[in-house]
Amino acid sequence: MPEPGMPGAGRRWLPRSTEGWLTLVILVFGGVLGLATDTFLTFANLFDLLNISAFNAIMAVGLLVVLVAGGIDISFAVAASVVQYLTAVTVMQLGGGNWAIGLVLASAFGFMLGAINASLIYYFRIISIVVTIATFNIFFGLLMFFTRGRSIYDLPDWLLDRIIVFEFETPGGDFAFLTLPVVVMMAVVVATWLFLNRSSLGRQLYAMGDNAEGARRVGINIAAMHFLAYGWLGVCAGIGGLMQAHYVQEVVPNALYGRELDVLAAVVLGGARLGGGRGTILGALLGVTLVTMTQNGLNLMGVSPYAFQMVVGLVILVAITMSNLEGLEAFIRRFRSGRARAEAGRQG
């Protein structure tokens, strides 16, 4: 992978890191949206964005762990749906349960699904993208088969009751509020940050993504690292899934289908590298912010919601290309010299 020598790294007034660039883009984009619409820069809207993006942020930091370790996973969003189902069914069996039981169950189920990926990747040396394409289909196929595509609305009360953690009336008279998923999101983000940056195991994970052979040489337990990485993402997916079910107050088997791409897009935008060793929590969160803002902004500006995916795809393509302007220059040079040669040929 190319070094992300960002364009104009030599110019002092431009940001030098991916996070810096994202912040700049978010500020400019936010300013434009604030001017173009009269609803974007309101507390109500911003808090709403936070509530909506809690699920994506939880998933994003989980996925970051896998990317940092040098893998990739596209099965986590449908895994979250599976966890929603398993958890809902289990707590009903247990006679209702409560938040503590729900969270523990969701984490355990999530870890289990992640461990399936980890063992296939580690023990059979199958590349992670192939394994997770397969498990994506297995998880989703089995979920749709066993549920017959039916949703569950009959959820326990503790899961259905909206918990508002913080609320205030804005000067405009609207109510801005923060819900439980936001608090859980913050907890997951802090925990993942502590894990990746402050714990010995997290550092071993970075080391494995950075230089797998070197990690083996210094005696890092590669098998354990695989279970840790995919398991952590699994737990995040499980918790995220529970929060999403709580937020929409139902469990729909195909609700999260396709969400993995938004999350992956966000994390990659945030500077995580496919191949491992690089990526920060801050970057991932900024990536989620930008993706969410794009969606919200296009919405507020009255652009068709269908355009959203298109813009996200384009933004990633541009971001990848910008991260190596040298390659782009080589291409343009070649294109020009090819044309010049063709013209010379015509004359000669």
Partner: peptide, 18 residues
């Protein structure tokens, strides 16, 4: 067998992470 993305200090003291 070093880790290019990590700081020099962490590379030297990586033993502490093991």
């Amino acid at each position: 067998a070093l880790f290019p993305e990590m700081t020099v200090a962490e590379n030297i003291a990586f033993e502490a992470n093991l």
